[in-house]
Amino acid sequence: MRLIQLSDLHFGTEQPAVVAALVARVQQLQPDVILLSGDITQRARRAQFAACRRFLNQLPAVPVLAVPGNHDLPLFNLWQRFSQPYAHYRRIFGHRLAPVYDNGDVLVVGVNTTRPGKHVDGGFSAATIASVSQYLRASTATVKIVMGHHPVDAVLATDEQNVAAGAEAAVRAWTAAGMQLYLAGHIHYPFFADLEHRYPGIPPQCWTAQAGTAISRRVRADIANSFNVIEWLPQQQMLCLQRWDDTQVGGGFTRVAQQLIAVRQPPALRG
């Protein structure tokens, strides 16, 4: 099973040539599910969400699971930001801000990390941590993934301020409930990391996959536009994380990094 994680599309700042390259690669990869980890638009405008709809219509007709990012809330229209902050978002993606995908073998739980009262910062409330834990414990899926917009880990010291409030409580609760992988965006800096390094004592084989910005000109330093692929390999009982960058050398998006992770055993079977 193949999932593609696209993040920080920032429609309104998209690069047409990169969009075309991404569409071609996603069509070639033929995912089973497409995941959008927030900042779908630059300024949460109706036209920018409509541009995203047109983009999605060019991709394979598979389930799309999306969560909002801080840029998907109005910035300058303060009345809308505090009275109907997700109105335009919901016209495209439906009412649920924390959707769930579960095919019986793979579970993906969406988390809304945005806060209308905050311009950039995100976090996990106690209620969110509890509800996601409940989903994770109730599911019999082999692979359990949580996806939000804001990260729970950082590689660069300058990104520590972007780690979501409540990240440690969330990671400890969710890994105890069976989560193996947390997906996020926000910082436009892609990486894969073993969460045990940041949160000692959590179960082994729990990772985070950060996606870069897929199509926006708002790239960071020399980091290319990129997206992630998550493949579930049931025969090998492995997850394969892949990073695909826009190499701009004629081949479009190319795989540049890969990480294999052994799938966690259910708690009753560990030890």
Rank of each mutant, 00 (worst) to 15 (best):
V120I: 15
A157W: 08
P151M: 08
A170D: 08
S139T: 10
D159K: 00
V132K: 01
K144Q: 07
L136Y: 09
K144D: 01
V163L: 10
V155W: 00
A167M: 13
V163Y: 04
A164G: 09
T128S: 13
P151S: 08
N162K: 14
G123E: 02
G122Q: 06
S139C: 06
S131L: 08
V155Q: 13
V146R: 01
F124E: 04
H149D: 00
Q161A: 13
V163A: 08
R137G: 00
Q134G: 01
D153H: 14
V146D: 09
A164I: 11
I129T: 12
V132G: 02
T128L: 07
H150F: 05
H149A: 02
F124Q: 00
A169C: 05
T128E: 14
A165S: 11
L136F: 09
A127S: 13
A127Y: 09
A130E: 14
A157M: 07
D121R: 15
A127T: 14
G122C: 10
A130N: 07
D159P: 03
D153S: 11
P151V: 08
H150T: 03
F124W: 14
D121T: 10
F124R: 01
G122H: 05
A165R: 15
V143E: 01
V163Q: 02
S139K: 11
Y135F: 15
R137H: 03
T128D: 11
Q134L: 05
V163E: 03
T158K: 15
K144R: 15
V155M: 11
G166K: 09
H150P: 01
T140L: 13
G122R: 03
A154N: 04
R137Y: 01
V152P: 00
V163K: 03
S131P: 07
I129G: 02
D153Y: 14
V163P: 06
R137W: 03
A154M: 08
V146I: 06
V143F: 04
R137S: 10
G148D: 03
M147S: 03
E160D: 09
P151H: 05
D153C: 08
A167T: 12
V120N: 06
A138S: 14
G148E: 02
S131C: 08
N162F: 10
L136M: 12
G148M: 07
A165P: 02
A127Q: 15
A164Y: 01
Y135C: 15
E168S: 13
A170R: 01
K144S: 02
Q161V: 11
S139E: 05
V152Y: 00
A165K: 14
V146C: 13
V143A: 14
A157F: 05
A165N: 10
A130D: 14
V132W: 05
V152L: 07
M147R: 02
E160V: 10
R137V: 11
G122L: 10
K144Y: 06
H149N: 03
